[in-house]
Design a binder for these strands. Structure first.
Lengths: 214, 214
DNA sequence: TAATGTGAACTTCTTCACAGCC
DNA sequence: GGCTGTGAAGAAGTTCACATTA
């Protein structure tokens, strides 16, 4: 069986949550954790936690639980975040600039190495809070991908510009895209993840009963 | 059967995507659409689209397809976005300010009516790009919830401040929370949605094979 | 006693396939 | 011909329950 064959997608997604929780446990000085504790912190059953982890190996010790340090190392290896990923950002609008300043990416090993934008009035500018990063034209993108060994791109552009930006990044050699534009990108054969901010608010609206709340 | 009983969660999530695509179709002057076309644009099967929509009613016409205008109206009603939702934002850091400037929320009927922060140095300031909005202290939150009839809150605070902020919002009467902090909130009996930006990058890292990419 | 790992049971979701309608 | 709505079949994911180990 190949690496990700037969492993449920939801299990992989939860892996990130386990990692986050384990890092938090470590920060509090916990060095051992049970599937029950891990599950409780994340709103999952203990069986779910054990099953998920078991897809990737045998990390626990019966009667004891999981070693926090060890499990963190294992999950990072599985996710491929036991290394640095160079990431480029397309779109230097409000969202793009906020992402550039966000410290969480670097903490997890994702380095934003460059920002691009179509808008000439932004090109050449630096971004407050991200010293040394200058907005570049899209024409520079292929060179940056090659020189900085970039594999991931974050799209923070309007929906109307997203497809073009994605095509451009892929042609330059990028292999995975995190898309914040509210549009489904077409015909891309690469790793993809999408975040549509308003979609989540709509889900909340639905959960609240959709209309009977004055 | 009650409103959301027996309706798969995934179907509700896709409803937002259908709406987004339909609005796009309308913008291009398309007034009728088939389940096949809708599915193709979103990377879904036609059967999936029909099944999803059928959970909520009979909106299509055999031999014809779906009327775009009508379906948009129906989905908005189902999601509860055929009205304005007043939303408050907690956290006036980089992400918070970017969200405040993001036009997409207002377009979908979510009005950000106020921003709050714990940090005294931010209180009283306005946010560039969001004229008229002044950062307020958390102590003002209950009054704002009451006066502006707020039901939703967006959390754009650090992980360490998220639980407190959520508790505060809930106590004031907020009924749904969109959480951007990388932490699982505990003991909240309200509608919840979470977005962890780094989790999505980790998923891309995993998809790329996790380590064999130089 | 405490806790894992795992086959089996169960539940949920997706796809199929087709009757019925335009 | 084209297309929807839907029961039935199939696939995927979750929970159960227990043998096993510390």
């Amino acid at each position: 069986m190949s690496r990700s064959d037969s492993i449920p997608g939801p299990a992989v997604r939860r892996l990130s949550l386990y990692l986050r929780q384990l890092e938090s446990s470590l920060g509090v000085g916990k060095h051992t954790v049970s599937s029950r504790q891990l599950g409780q912190a994340l709103g999952l059953t203990d069986a779910q936690v054990r099953k998920d982890l078991a897809y990737f190996g045998q990390f626990g010790r019966p009667g004891i639980g999981y070693d926090v340090d060890d499990l963190i190392t294992q999950i990072r290896r599985i996710l491929g975040t036991d290394r640095v990923w160079n990431v480029l950002l397309i779109g230097a609008g409000n969202l793009g600039r906020a992402l550039l300043c966000y410290r969480g990416f670097a903490k997890k090993g994702f380095h934003l190495v460059a920002v691009f934008d179509k808008d000439d009035s932004l090109i050449g500018r630096t971004v407050e809070g991200a010293p040394g990063v200058v907005v570049q034209p899209l024409s520079d993108l292929p060179n940056v991908v090659r020189e900085h060994n970039v594999h991931l791109a974050i799209l923070a552009v309007p929906a109307s510009a997203a497809q073009e930006a994605a095509d451009c990044a892929l042609k330059a050699g990028v292999r995975g895209i995190l898309n914040f534009a509210p549009v489904t990108l077409q015909g891309l054969s690469c790793a993809m993840a999408s975040v549509d901010l308003t979609v989540h608010l709509e889900q909340l609206s639905f959960q609240l009963g959709g209309g009977d709340t004055a």
